[in-house]
Write a protein that binds this DNA or RNA. Structure first.
Lengths: 186, 186
DNA sequence: GTCTATACGAAGATAGAC
DNA sequence: GTCTATCTTCGTATAGAC
């Protein structure tokens, strides 16, 4: 029995949950400690630089999921429409059908923005590139594809906010359902 | 010369700026004090209940602007298309062309959500009603109008997030430009 | 109505034992 | 690798003088 101890990855997942609940500045070492079941000192064992380090780990968790389970749907074989539909389905799971907030929003305000904005910008830019490529494959010209990819980001981020404000996953679900059609419209 | 002193409204406007910069939990009494130029004790003179009270005042400032300068555009005379265009133009000013974050987003996470989520939900619901009414006047049936009004909320909120993440007002400007046409499409 | 001073708990972070 | 204990700074809030 090598370990009943949590792996760094498992700890990071629990940190992520707490950052999503409270935001960067709203998450305290006390709340992060409670969320992980580890004492503060144990957290510093995993994350020597403290809270920023924990937030970075949380971002790496979502970044990894995004790269491994969501974005690959855009690059696989098959017709653009099918790929976009798979992508949207994976995104829906990623955000638990609209129940989970996105770190892009949470970490782009206040102190967290100083640490993470650059990475968030790069990450969104990369997603826009991947989405554009799919649309271009469907015969949409590059400039228009870029605009529509940006629109997709707008709709996903907006749907998350509206869903949590209204207390219903419906706006998010509806937005993702119609997204592929909008992106490939002629 | 009755007063070189700041009115409660003027103080609230400066508080608003700081809450927008840092979010609810990111704004400290120290930063709020600096933003207003008032000592902490003076702030407590205006806002006896402390930080929540200051945030409430900031929300009242934006709520007032929204009710007085943005939403009336929807209720005035004239064709629906013109009213929606005026509304979007006013919204653009309201958010300074996409440079300012919306309190709906900032105050719907963490501790602030406990205080303000109900009000934010009501406010967004009200806006959706007003937008729907305009579309219905243009002959769009009620259920479709309600969906599109929700879409409008999605696009505005999303455009604000994307614009700040990418560091460009372009997504916000483009989104608002095409919004009236999308809402009234047949 | 604004200030200085201060109380006091919370927050981030570290030391050192086990 | 986890804990208890502790340090220091920050955050919220209040008292009381002017």
């Amino acid at each position: 029995m090598p370990a009943a101890t949590l792996s760094r990855e498992e700890v990071a997942q629990r940190l992520l949950a707490e950052f999503r609940r409270s935001g960067y500045q709203g998450a305290s070492l006390a709340s992060l400690s409670e969320a992980t079941g580890l004492g503060k000192s144990s957290l510093y064992h995993y994350f020597p630089e403290g809270k920023v380090d924990m937030a970075r780990a949380a971002m790496e968790v979502v970044g990894g999921w995004m790269r491994e389970t969501v974005l690959p749907n855009l690059s696989k074989d098959g017709p653009p429409e099918k790929r976009l539909k798979k992508y949207c389905a994976a995104l829906s799971e990623f955000y638990e059908k609209g129940a989970l907030p996105c770190l892009t929003e949470l970490f782009s305000i206040g102190e967290a923005a100083e640490y993470f904005q650059q990475m968030l910008r790069q990450s969104m830019g990369n997603t826009i590139k991947l989405l554009s490529a799919v649309m271009e494959e469907d015969g949409i010209d590059a400039a228009e594809a870029a605009r529509r990819a940006e629109d997709a980001m707008v709709m996903v981020q907006g749907a998350l906010i509206v869903s949590r404000t209204l207390g219903s996953n419906a706006p998010f679900a509806r937005t993702l359902r119609k997204l592929p059609e909008i992106l490939l419209a002629r």
